[in-house]
Design a protein around this nucleic acid. Structure first.
Length: 876
DNA sequence: AGTCGAACTGTTCCTGACGGG
DNA sequence: TCCCCGTCAGGAACAGTTCGA
C-alpha cells in the first residue's frame, strides 16, 4: 500500500498523529463509482467498500486522516478478518450512508481510497467510545454528585445528539445504549422519545439532573461512603459492570466515554450534513445489499450496531437537530424507579440574553472536531486569545465536597477570553472544558471536569453539555462585548481516580496527574456552512491541595530553545521555587528510557519564590543535525518536582562570518543550499544599516553576520507587538509556522510595524539563525491578514556568539514574551530576556544585541541594562 | 525478593467566613 | 439584629500507595 498523495497528511502537518484520527470524524471525498477502504491500520486496510451512490462522500471534515491508495488486491484480503472492529464499524457507517461495504468484491485495479488510521487506534477509539465503555462513568460512581460524573447529557440533549432517538436507541451491539446499560438511567433514557424539533434545548438534561436521579436510585449519599481511597475498596470489574450488563471490551486508549458512541452521534451529524446538502441518498442505502459479513458484524458488534442505528436514525429523522426533549413527567411511568428530583437548574437554561437555539451557537448543526483534536488558536482573521490567564493553582473540589468556586486569575479576577477578528453580529458559543497539561497533546482530562458555577456572583451565563464524556460549558461570546467574556462560571471538579482508572480503556492514571488547563474553543460559522474552529488552552493549573502548596511549578520560561552549546540564561517564572531548587535537564527515549540528565546551574543569588535563573547546560551531543527535544524540571528536595518542561537544543549552524561592510546597503542575499551538519539550508547574509541598531550598543557591524536557514521559516518572537493581534502556532501542534514570515520581495526583515514600535521607517534586523523549529512560538504582527507574504516582525534582540570561527546566532524565542517580561520586570534582569545569555559573558566581544531605537524610549532602559551587563562582564 | 516504616497522595470531613433572604 | 442557608475556602484527618532503607 502506498501513501496517497492526497496532500492531506501534509496539510495536517507532520506531527498529526494518526492516532488522532477518529473515524467518526471522517469525511472522505469519494468519487462516484470508485471504491475505498476503511481500515484501522494502514498496513491492514479494512474491507473494501464500494459505493452505490452517485454522490461523493466521506472524510475528514476537520483534520486528520491517513489516506492512502491501495495497490493491494482486494481479493488478497481475508474476509474472515472481518471482525467486529473498526472495519465493521466503518463499513456500517458507510453502509448506513448508502455505501455498501463489500470486501473483496472490487477488482484490484479499481482505484481506491483508503482511510487507514494507523495501528489499532481507530478501533480503540471506536471501542473507547462504545456505549459499553461510555456507560462506565454513569455507573461507576454512584456517589457522584451533581455535575461531576459525566452523565451523558449529550445523549439526551437534542442539542448535541440529534441522532439519539430513544425509540431507536440501540446503543451497543446487544441493543443496549449506555443508558440501557445503566438501569438507573434507563427510564430517563427511554423517556425522551417524543421529539420536538421545536423544543427548546432547555429541555436537554444536564448531568446534574441525572445525578439527582441516579443518586436517588442507586447510590448511598456521599457521606455514607467508605473513606477508602479506593472506591469502595477498589471497585471490581464485576462491580463496575454489574450496572452495565455488557461485557467489557478491553480498550487501549483513554477516551472520555460515558455517552453513546460518538459514532452514533457524529456519524449521524455527518449524515445529517450530507443529507442537508443533498448529497446523501437514502434510497441508495435502502437498496444496497448488506454483505453477510456486515450483517454478522452488525448483529454482534456493539459499535457497529450503535453506529448503524445512529446513522439510520439520523437518516430517518433529519429534523432532530434540536428535536428531542426529555419529558420528566413521563419518566416515572416508564421507569418505575424513583423519580429524579427535578430542579430547574437541571435543565439547560439558556440565559435570557442568549438567543434560542442558534445555528451558530448551540453548535449542534455541524460536525465539530473532537475535543481531543488539537486546533489552532488562530486561523485567517480569527484568533482566540486568553486575555487573562487563570491562577496556576486552583483546588478542585470532589463530588463529595461543595464547590470550591470559580477559577480565578492571580489578581483575584477571572480568566478572560476574547475572539478577535469576528465581524459577525450573531453571538457565538465559547466552549470550555478541562484539558490535560502534561507533555502529550492536549486532550480532555480524564480526572477532571469543568464545573459550572452558578450564583449571584456569577455574571456569565453558561450551559452544560457533554461531549464524548467530557463536560463542556458553553458560554456566549457576544459582539456587543467585543466577543470577549469573563470566565467566572468555571470551576473544576475532581473525579475519583479509581473511578476513572477502572473505566474501560482508561490508560491514564490519576495519581499525581493533577494539572489541568482550561481549554476554550469556538466554532465560527462560515458562509459555506463550514465552521472555523479555534482553540486555546490556558496555562497549566495545579488542582491538588498539596501539590499547589509545595511542588514547584514552572509557569513560564523565557527561552524554549538554545543551541547545543548551551550557556544561555533562561528565566523561569513559576511558584514554589526555593534557594535549593535545582533544574534538571533530561532526555528520554521514546520508550521512556532516560538517556541524559544533567543539572543546570542555577543562580542562587537571584532566585526568588517565583523566579529562577538558570544557565542552560550544553547538550550531550553537540554535533546533532536536528533539533533535540529534551525536558527539564525544577526540583525541590527529592520528590517535589515540577512538571517537565520542554526545551529544544538546536544544532549549531555555522557559516563563515564575513564583514557586513562587504555588502551594499539595503540589500541582502542568501545563497542556496548550504549544508551544514547535514542540514540543507539557505544562508542569508544580511545587511544592516549602520544606524541606530549599532549605535545602540556601539557594536561592530560584522557581528551581525549570520547565516540562517530559509528565512521564510524564520520564527520571530516579539511580544512587544501585543497591541496587535498576535498570531502564533498553537501549542504543541506544530513546530513549523505555516505563516510566511518572510517577504522575499522585501529587501529586509522589518522591525516592528506595530504602532507603538514603528514610528519611523523600518529598520533592518539581522536574521536570526533559526531552525525551522524555531518557528514554534513565532509571532508575527501584520497590518492585515491574508495579504500575500507576510512581513515578519522581529524585535527580539539577537545575540551572536562566536565559536571557533563559527558564528551562531542565538534566539531567545521563548514561550513567554521577552518583551513583556522586560516590561514587567524592567530593571531586574533584562538582558537575558533580550536574548543575551551567558554566552555574552563568555565572549563579550562577540556578543551583540541590536535594539531598534526609534520611538522605543522604553527600550533605552534595555540598552542601559545591556550596557551595564556588558560592562560588568568586561570588568570581571 | 521481601519487609517495614516513612513519606506521599487522594479523598473526605470539619470549620469558618461571607452574603443574602 | 439574628438566624438560616448556601457558597466558598482553608485546613487537616484518615487511609491507601509509593518509595527507600
Amino acid at each position: 500500500m502506498t501513501s496517497a498523495g492526497l496532500g492531506l497528511t501534509d496539510a495536517l502537518g507532520p506531527d498529526v498523529s494518526q492516532e488522532e484520527l477518529d473515524f467518526s470524524d471522517l469525511f472522505l471525498y469519494h468519487p462516484p463509482g470508485e471504491d475505498f477502504r476503511v481500515g484501522c491500520d494502514k498496513d491492514d486496510p479494512g474491507p473494501l467498500l464500494q459505493s452505490d451512490t452517485q454522490s461523493s462522500l466521506v472524510v475528514v471534515d476537520h483534520h486528520r486522516a491517513y489516506l492512502s491508495t491501495s495497490d493491494k488486491p482486494a481479493s488478497s484480503r481475508d474476509p474472515s478478518s472481518f471482525s467486529p472492529t473498526t472495519e465493521n464499524l466503518s463499513g456500517a457507517v458507510f453502509d448506513s450512508l448508502g455505501l455498501t461495504s463489500r470486501p473483496g468484491t472490487i477488482p484490484a485495479p479499481s482505484p481506491r481510497i483508503e482511510i487507514t488510521p494507523s495501528g489499532d487506534s481507530l478501533s480503540s477509539q471506536t471501542h473507547d467510545r462504545s456505549p459499553s465503555s461510555k456507560a462506565y462513568r454513569e455507573c461507576v460512581s454512584p456517589a457522584s454528585s451533581n455535575s461531576s460524573t459525566g452523565w451523558p447529557a449529550e445523549a439526551y440533549s437534542p442539542l448535541t445528539s440529534p441522532c439519539v432517538s430513544p425509540s431507536n436507541a440501540a446503543g451497543c451491539g446487544v441493543g443496549l445504549s449506555a443508558l440501557d446499560l445503566c438501569p438507573g438511567l434507563q427510564g430517563i433514557h427511554t423517556s425522551s422519545a417524543h421529539s420536538s424539533p421545536g423544543t427548546s434545548p432547555h429541555n436537554g438534561i444536564t448531568d446534574d439532573t441525572f445525578l439527582h436521579a441516579h443518586q436517588r436510585i442507586s447510590s448511598p449519599r456521599p457521606h455514607q461512603r467508605s473513606r477508602s481511597a479506593s472506591p469502595q475498596g477498589k471497585r471490581t470489574y464485576d462491580q463496575v459492570y454489574s450496572c452495565q450488563g455488557a461485557t467489557p471490551v478491553k480498550q487501549r486508549s483513554r477516551s472520555p466515554s460515558p455517552i453513546p458512541s460518538p459514532h452514533e452521534q457524529q456519524g449521524a451529524y455527518y449524515l445529517h450534513q450530507y443529507q442537508a446538502q443533498g448529497e446523501f441518498h437514502p434510497q441508495a442505502q435502502a437498496s444496497t445489499p448488506v454483505p453477510k459479513e456486515m450483517l454478522s458484524s452488525l448483529s454482534t458488534s456493539p459499535v457497529v450496531s450503535a453506529v448503524a442505528h445512529g446513522a439510520h436514525r439520523q437518516v430517518q429523522r433529519p429534523d432532530c437537530v434540536y428535536g428531542d426533549g426529555y419529558d420528566w413527567a413521563l419518566e416515572p411511568e416508564k421507569t418505575a424507579r424513583p423519580v429524579p428530583e427535578v430542579k430547574s437548574e437541571a435543565f439547560y437554561m439558556l440565559p435570557a440574553a442568549w438567543p434560542r437555539p442558534h445555528p451558530t451557537f448551540g453548535l449542534p448543526m455541524t460536525p465539530l472536531p473532537s475535543l481531543e483534536w488539537p486546533l489552532p488558536c488562530q486561523s485567517g482573521q480569527y484568533q482566540l486569545l486568553i486575555q487573562q490567564q487563570p491562577r496556576s493553582h486552583h483546588r478542585a473540589h470532589y463530588e463529595t465536597e461543595g464547590s470550591r468556586g470559580a477559577v480565578k486569575t492571580p489578581n483575584g479576577g477571572h480568566p478572560e477570553v476574547q475572539l478577535h477578528g469576528y465581524q459577525g453580529t450573531a453571538p457565538l458559543g465559547l466552549q470550555v472544558f478541562i484539558g490535560t497539561a502534561d507533555e502529550r497533546l492536549l486532550k480532555p482530562h480524564a480526572f477532571y471536569q469543568v464545573h459550572r458555577i452558578t450564583g449571584k456572583t456569577v455574571t456569565t451565563p453558561s450551559m452544560e453539555r457533554m461531549s464524548n464524556g467530557t463536560k463542556v460549558l458553553e458560554i456566549p461570546l457576544e459582539p456587543k462585548n467585543h466577543m470577549g467574556v469573563v470566565i467566572d462560571c468555571v470551576g473544576i471538579l475532581k473525579l475519583r481516580n479509581a473511578d476513572i482508572e477502572l473505566r474501560n480503556g482508561e490508560t491514564d492514571i490519576g495519581r499525581k496527574n493533577t494539572r489541568v488547563r482550561l481549554v476554550f474553543r469556538v466554532h465560527i460559522p462560515q458562509p459555506g456552512g463550514q465552521f472555523v474552529s479555534l482553540q486555546v488552552a490556558s496555562h497549566p493549573i495545579e488542582c491538588s491541595q498539596r501539590s499547589a502548596q509545595e511542588v514547584p511549578a514552572v509557569e513560564r520560561q523565557d527561552l524554549d530553545k538554545c543551541s547545543v552549546l548551551g550557556g544561555q540564561q533562561m528565566v523561569l517564572t513559576g511558584q514554589n521555587f526555593t534557594s535549593d531548587s535545582k533544574v534538571i535537564f533530561s532526555e528520554k527515549t521514546q520508550d521512556g528510557r532516560q538517556v541524559w540528565e544533567v543539572e543546570a546551574t542555577v543562580d542562587r543569588d537571584k532566585t526568588q519564590a517565583n523566579m529562577l535563573f538558570v544557565e542552560v547546560p550544553p547538550y550531550k551531543d553537540q554535533s546533532i543535525c536536528h533539533p533535540a527535544k529534551v525536558n527539564f524540571y525544577v526540583i525541590n528536595g527529592k520528590k517535589k518536582r515540577s512538571q517537565p518542561q520542554h526545551f529544544i537544543y538546536t544544532p549549531v549552524i555555522a557559516i563563515k562570518a564575513e564583514p557586513v561592510d562587504d555588502y551594499p546597503l539595503n540589500s541582502y542575499g542568501y545563497t542556496e543550499n548550504h549544508s551544514v551538519s547535514g542540514l540543507s539550508m539557505k544562508s542569508l547574509y544580511h545587511h544592516l544599516e549602520q544606524d541606530s541598531n549599532l549605535q545602540a550598543l556601539n557594536l561592530s557591524p560584522s557581528v551581525f553576520h549570520a547565516s540562517t536557514v530559509d528565512p521564510r521559516l524564520h520564527g520571530l518572537a516579539s511580544d512587544l507587538l501585543d497591541t496587535q493581534p498576535v498570531y502564533y502556532q498553537s501549542r504543541s501542534s506544530t513546530l513549523i509556522s505555516n505563516q510566511v514570515l518572510y517577504n522575499p520581495a522585501n529587501p529586509r526583515y522589518i522591525n516592528c510595524s506595530t504602532p507603538h514600535l514603528s514610528g519611523s521607517p523600518m529598520t533592518s534586523h539581522p536574521p536570526n539563525t533559526s531552525s525551522p523549529n524555531q518557528c514554534t512560538a513565532a509571532r508575527t504582527a501584520t497590518g492585515k491578514l491574508g495579504e500575500g507574504p507576510r512581513v515578519a516582525e522581529s524585535f527580539e534582540a539577537c545575540s551572536v556568539t562566536r565559536h571557533q570561527g563559527l558564528v551562531q546566532t542565538v534566539l531567545p524565542l521563548g514561550k513567554s514574551s521577552p518583551s513583556r517580561y522586560i516590561q514587567g520586570q524592567m530593571g531586574c534582569e533584562p538582558l537575558t530576556h533580550m536574548g543575551s545569555g551567558r554566552s555574552h559573558h563568555e565572549d563579550p566581544a562577540a556578543e551583540r544585541t541590536t535594539v531598534k531605537q526609534e520611538n522605543l524610549s522604553y527600550l533605552e532602559d534595555v540598552n542601559d541594562i545591556i550596557r551595564r551587563d556588558l560592562k560588568g562582564h568586561e570588568g570581571d
